[in-house]
């Protein structure tokens, strides 16, 4: 009986040594999952999720501090992608964070703009051009539609307009048929 106990004990000690060594040898620095989550976020940097941009939100998700349904610009697509990546169940968008809306871009009414540069400081992607006392303008192709420039503007000259629909961006619609579309659950 004693020998059996001792044998198991020694075996366990050996495995303990091995595991202790492995823990030091194979220590992973950093967290690659943050990059993967970040890659799925829409990068509007709008802060609607409650974090200061997409990457902080990604870090929070990875740490389990934030839920995956806090990104209104990404909408359902992003939630599904995140659920897939993290092996979670998709859930509906957190309504408190806002609604998934059509994509918009900011446009500055150049007649009204007084050139205060406040919006330039607010823009998370440096998509607004201009200098002090000069009229500003938004680079449409780089604007993420985050709406962060609207609040600082003292003269309310910025408005959000829907992205123009072009024949080249047109997408074939999902086929209409008698069948009800099924959820994206695989076989």
């Amino acid at each position: 009986m004693l020998t059996a106990m001792l044998a198991i004990g020694i075996l366990a000690a050996l495995f303990g040594l091995l595991l202790g060594y492995a823990a030091i040898r194979f220590k992973v620095e950093g967290d690659p999952i943050v990059d993967q989550i970040d890659a799925l976020l829409p990068q509007t940097q709008c802060g609607q999720c409650g974090f200061a941009g997409c990457r902080p939100y990604a870090r929070a998700i990875a740490a389990g501090e934030a839920d995956i349904n806090q990104c209104p610009p990404g909408g359902e697509t992003t939630i599904h992608a995140l659920a897939d990546l993290l092996g979670l169940d998709p859930k509906p968008l957190d309504a408190e964070r806002g609604e998934h809306a059509e994509k918009t871009v900011a446009v500055i009414d150049e007649q009204v703009c007084i050139g205060c540069t406040l919006c330039i400081q607010a823009c998370p992607v440096d998509a607004i051009l201009g200098a002090a006392k000069q009229m500003h303008t938004v680079i449409e192709s780089e604007c993420t539609g985050c709406e962060l420039c609207i609040a600082p503007c003292p003269v309310d000259c910025i408005s959000m307009v829907p992205v123009k629909k072009d024949i080249r961006d047109w997408k074939w619609p999902y086929p209409q048929s008698a069948q009800r579309p099924v959820a994206a659950s695989g076989e």
Binding site: G9, A12, A13, G16, L17, A23
Partner: peptide, 13 residues
């Protein structure tokens, strides 16, 4: 490493 091993040993015993 040794602490890990010892810990596991004690539990096994």
């Amino acid at each position: 490493i040794l602490i890990s091993a010892l810990f596991l040993f004690l539990f096994a015993v």
